[in-house]
Design a protein around this nucleic acid. Structure first.
Length: 468
DNA sequence: GTTGAGCGTT
C-alpha cells in the first residue's frame, strides 16, 4: 500500500497514449516516478487506463483538482486503489488469505526488483544496493529465448536489516532510472510440477511438485542442515508459542526414495516451526494442520489461481501453520493430508495436552514405479505417544484418504517406498543403508539412495549452499 | 475502450 501512495489511476486514456506521454504530461505537477499504460497481455492492445506514480503523494491533491486532456481525450484521474481495496472483484475472493508469503512481517534477505531499465547491468545494480548492506547475490532476469532483459531481478543481502533499509521506500533511483523493490516471493512456494495436477487423488492433494521438507528450527538439534534458509519464508516464530508441548523431538526426515528423487522425506517437527515447505497452491481449502490455528491456512491461495496478487504481499500463512498439529479428534481430517481439514478439531490449538509426537511421514517416493503409489502416511497423526496402536483411527484411518491407503506412520508403511516398513511396530527397514534405523536421526549421513535424508529433507540445497 | 504486472539462475 505504501507503494500506492502517490499513485494515480488514469482512466479513459487514448489508445495512443503511452507511458512516456503520461509521464510528460504529469511531470508538470511533480516528480513522476513511474507511469504505466495497461495493455492486454495477449494482444498488447491498450486497455484504456494506466497509472502514474508521483514521488510526492501530496501532489495528488492538485492533480485531482484539474481536468486532464491527453492525446485529445479527457481522462479520468483518481487515486489508485490498492489492490486490497479493490472491491469490484468477485464476491468471495477479495483478499487476505490468498496472499501467499512474501509480505507481512516475514523477514527475508532477498528483494525482488521490478522495473529495471533494460540497460541496467548486474554491476550497476549491485553498486547501488551495496550502500544498504552487504550484497550476496545479484540476479537480473533475461528471457531465455530472446535474451532480452525481462525487467526485473533479485538482490540478496546478508542481513535482513539491509533489506529493511531498502524497503524503506518502494522506488529507488538508480542513476536516474527508477526501480521498484519488493520482498521476493519464495520461489520454492511454486509448484514445481507445473502448478496443477497436484492432487494425486483422494484427499491427499499431495501429488507432487515441490514438496519440501523443512523444519529445521532452533530447537531441533538433530535437524539435518539446521541452517535456516532465509530464502524461504519459513518462520520459526511458532517456536514454543503454540504449546506443542513437549517434544522437541527431532524431526525426522528420511528418505527412502530409491531413485534419487529429491523427495521422500519430510521432516521436521519438533514443536517449532513446522516448516512445511511444500507448495500446494491452488488448493485453497487445504488447511493443512490445525484448523484452529489462525494462520494455518496453508496455501490458501485462490484455487486455480495461484499467486494472483503480486502487489500486496500479505502476511504469510506459509510455513506458519501447525502442520500435523492435529489433535486426535481431528485425526481423520488431518489424515486427508491436505484434504480440507474440515473435521474440526476437538482441541484448542494452544492446548498443550494431548498431542505430542505427532509426526507424519510423507511416504517414500517409489521411484519409477508409478506415481506415488505407496506414499504413505502423509498426514498421519500420531497423538500423544502411547496412542499409536495399530488400529487407532489415527494414521490408519487417516490414510484412508490417501491414494494407496498404505497407511501412515503409526501403523504402517511409514517411510517406505515399498510400503513395508512400519514405524511404530516393527523395524525400520526401508533401506538397508539406513542401518541405524533411527527414526529422526540421519544415520551418519548414510542414507538410501542419493537423496535419502538430505535431499528430501529441506529440499534442494540453495544455490548459496552449493557454492560453499 | 476506466483499477496492473512482473518472481530466478546454477
Amino acid at each position: 500500500m505504501d507503494s500506492d501512495q502517490g499513485k494515480l489511476f488514469i482512466g479513459g486514456i487514448s489508445w495512443e497514449t503511452t507511458e512516456e506521454k503520461l509521464k510528460e504530461y504529469f511531470q508538470g505537477y511533480g516528480d513522476v516516478l513511474q507511469t504505466v499504460v495497461m495493455r492486454d497481455k495477449i494482444s498488447g492492445k491498450p486497455r484504456g487506463f494506466g497509472f502514474v506514480v508521483f514521488a510526492d503523494p501530496n501532489v495528488l491533491d492538485r492533480v485531482l483538482q484539474d481536468e486532464h486532456t491527453i492525446d485529445g481525450r479527457t481522462v479520468d484521474a483518481k487515486r489508485a486503489l490498492s489492490r486490497e481495496e479493490q472491491q469490484g472483484s468477485k464476491p468471495g475472493d477479495t483478499n487476505s488469505a490468498r496472499n501467499f508469503g512474501g509480505g507481512g512481517n516475514t523477514r527475508t534477505k532477498k528483494i525482488f526488483v521490478g522495473g529495471l531499465p533494460p540497460t541496467l547491468t548486474e554491476d550497476g545494480f549491485r553498486q547501488y544496493f551495496e550502500s544498504f548492506g552487504s550484497v550476496t547475490d545479484v540476479v537480473i532476469m533475461y528471457d531465455q529465448q530472446t535474451n532480452r532483459p525481462r525487467g526485473f531481478g533479485f538482490i540478496s543481502f546478508d542481513s535482513e536489516d539491509a533489506v529493511d533499509r531498502v524497503l524503506q521506500k518502494t522506488f529507488h533511483d538508480l542513476n536516474g532510472k527508477q526501480v521498484e523493490v519488493k520482498k521476493a516471493l519464495p520461489k520454492d512456494a511454486n509448484p514445481g510440477a507445473g502448478g496443477r495436477s497436484m492432487s494425486s487423488g483422494g484427499g491427499s492433494g499431495m501429488g507432487g511438485g515441490s514438496y519440501q521438507g523443512y523444519g529445521a528450527s532452533g530447537n531441533n538439534p538433530s535437524s539435518y542442515d539446521s541452517r535456516m534458509d532465509s530464502n524461504r519464508y519459513v518462520q520459526s516464530q511458532n517456536a514454543g508459542g503454540m504449546g506443542y508441548g513437549g517434544y522437541g523431538t527431532p524431526g525426522y526426515g528420511y528418505g527412502t526414495s530409491n531413485n534419487g528423487m529429491g523427495f521422500g522425506g519430510y521432516g521436521s517437527y519438533g514443536g517449532a516451526n513446522p516448516g512445511y515447505g511444500g507448495a500446494n497452491p491452488g488448493y485453497g481449502a487445504a488447511a493443512y494442520g490445525n484448523p484452529n490455528v489462525a494462520s494455518a491456512g496453508y496455501g490458501s491461495g485462490p484455487a486455480g489461481g495461484p499467486r494472483s496478487t503480486w502487489g500486496s504481499q500479505g502476511p504469510s500463512a506459509y510455513g506458519n501453520m501447525g502442520y500435523g498439529n492435529v489433535p486426535l479428534g481431528a485425526a481423520n481430517a488431518a489424515g486427508g493430508g491436505g484434504g480440507p481439514a474440515s473435521g474440526g478439531s476437538g482441541q484448542s490449538p494452544t492446548g498443550t495436552t494431548g498431542y505430542g509426537n505427532q509426526v507424519y511421514g510423507y511416504g517414500g517416493y517409489p521411484g519409477n514405479e508409478g506415481a506415488y503409489g505407496n506414499q504413505s502416511g502423509y498426514g498421519a497423526v500420531g497423538r500423544a505417544s502411547g496412542a499409536l496402536s495399530s488400529n487407532s483411527p489415527v494414521g490408519g484411518g487417516a490414510a484412508g484418504d490417501m491414494q494407496s491407503g498404505a497407511g501412515g506412520y503409526v501403523n504402517s508403511g511409514y517411510g517406505d517406498a515399498s510400503g513395508n516398513s512400519s514405524y511404530g511396530n516393527s523395524a525400520w527397514k526401508s533401506d538397508n543403508s539406513q542401518g541405524s534405523g533411527n527414526y529422526g536421526a540421519p544415520p551418519n549421513g548414510a542414507h538410501g539412495g542419493q537423496v535419502g535424508y538430505g535431499g528430501g529433507y529441506g529440499g534442494a540445497p540453495s544455490r548459496q549452499a552449493q557454492q560453499q
